[in-house]
Amino acid sequence: MSTITTISESVGANRIVPTIAIPYPVGNPNLSKVVEEDLREKLVRRAITALGTEVEETTYF
């Protein structure tokens, strides 16, 4: 899970979840607490889905 996904690609990560921003990849302090939690839940769920998905090459989720 990263924001600068080109770096993730360059080091050979095969399952990549693009995130929000460098200082808060899995969050967003500009949102209300509840909305931010929804956002984080969605992103982490995506990462877990990625772990359960077969990939042949670098894939974005």
């Binding site: 808060y24 899995v26 969050g27 939690e37 992103l43 769920r45």
Partner: peptide, 12 residues
């Protein structure tokens, strides 16, 4: 948790 999202991992 905005960087290391333990809260959501625990929830799941």
């Amino acid at each position: 948790d905005r960087v290391a999202p333990l809260d959501m991992m625990r929830k799941f």
